[in-house]
Nucleic acid binder design. Structure first.
Lengths: 233, 233
DNA sequence: ATACAAATTTAAGCAAGCTTAATTATTTTT
DNA sequence: AAAAATAATTAAGCTTGCTTAAATTTGTAT
């Protein structure tokens, strides 16, 4: 059974989460400036934090080298993400909050959630595997479901019909754009045409055709066939 | 409709709550040392904070004088208390957490609760008026129910039968003592004898006689007659 | 290979919220 | 009313998590 031995802070939690999401979920290189941009702090702040966490054995780091989570750091990051996603589901499904607001709220609650509270929330929600955005909820052991059948919308061929599984966004503003288009996890669409020059995509959704900007297309993951796993229904 | 214009911090919230509970709920004089003891910080820290909050117009204070909440400060304190008690009820009734644990958990969540979240929680809980300890939940406007019919257990005469309405505790350890005696809001007891020398009290609870230490007696508020208001049932 | 640009680190500094130790007020006791 | 005890304040300093500006390293382009 997991329990943390290290005293974490909100700043550390957020740092670890950023390293995890950037490096592992998004598969990008974890550079100082990418972290700085994501966390909204200066590069000097990133260097400071990296050195500190390296001393604590939570990340591997030496000057001018890439920042990598140690096993401890990765588990810690996954726990914070777990709490975040449990709260998102709770806020959306139980308290009926607007999907565009749940991220920011969960961002605050995740840091004040004891292991016991996390367990109770998990139980109350029926041990869910996915949050309302379709993101997987890591288990207590830090395990994630298999997702090899998910494909980025960008890679879907013209003429194919797919189900939207996940929309990876953090910003309320962006979420509101998706709401405007009627796009959310669980919805089926047909890809009519991909405009290579900027990644925009013409799709059919609920019988209507529309053009989805490239900037939104890249945020969507989908799946062929009929299985859904959004919200676990 | 209430909404705060001031940027508060966890420390400020806790300070205001302490001033409110000590001065208004417990009717004691709000001295620096009492605050220091309650908040677990040094007196120097209290002086610092008092001066700062005075500048912000949240408390009235000048050196060596008593600390008093301004209207703004009082409203702010009541909002934090409202959030705290809503969370306590949620944790107890919805997540089935142990009564002895809910205070500490709510103590953390209360500071990360937006107005919107507070509203949703309130609605989900059915606009409750009391928390699981029997403490009243302030309204959004900062109003509290009339409680003129509540009497401290210490003042109850020998031979009287009363219903326990409220047990004012913060510490898990103390709560566990009450659990041991089977005492909680909603329970009826008969006062058999009051031992003046230390305030201990012999009572009958569920047919059994027992002696309740004076230190516990002073934490109980009760009511004659048959109306309950614990948890709003 | 050199020069320039971009990224990163270092250095110095700041605000919040504390601490301890020393000083000063206030209150209580005699 | 003075002395003693208690309480509050001031002063100096610490840690965390930042900041800006300058210096340095690394990567890129010619």
């Amino acid at each position: 059974m997991y329990f943390s031995l290290l005293k974490m802070s909100v700043s550390i939690d957020n740092f670890l989460k950023a390293v995890y999401v950037l490096g592992i979920e998004e598969g990008k290189k974890v550079t100082g400036s990418a972290l700085a941009a994501r966390l909204g702090i200066s590069s000097a702040g990133i260097t400071d934090m990296s050195r500190k966490l390296s001393r604590k054995g939570i990340v591997d780091y030496s000057p001018y080298k890439e920042i990598v989570l140690t096993e401890t750091g990765k588990l810690e990051a996954l726990q914070v993400i777990r709490k975040h996603r449990l709260w998102e589901l709770f806020l959306y499904k139980v308290l009926n909050m607007d999907m565009a607001d749940i991220h920011k709220e969960a961002e605050r609650l995740e840091h004040e959630t004891s292991i016991e509270l996390m367990h109770r929330l998990d139980e109350f929600l029926g041990f869910p595997q996915y949050d309302p955005h379709g993101e997987p909820i890591p288990s207590i052991e830090g395990l994630l479901p298999d997702e090899s059948d998910l494909i980025p919308l960008v890679e879907v061929n013209e003429g194919m019909r797919v189900k939207i599984i996940r929309i990876s966004i953090r910003e309320k503003e962006v979420y509101e754009m998706f709401q405007h288009y009627g796009i959310k996890p669980g919805i089926k669409i047909e890809v009519i045409r991909l405009f290579d020059f900027d990644g925009s995509m013409e799709i059919r959704i609920k019988g209507e055709k529309l053009i989805l900007p490239g900037s939104l297309v890249t945020l969507i993951l989908c799946k062929e066939g009929k299985n859904v796993h959004y919200g676990d229904q």
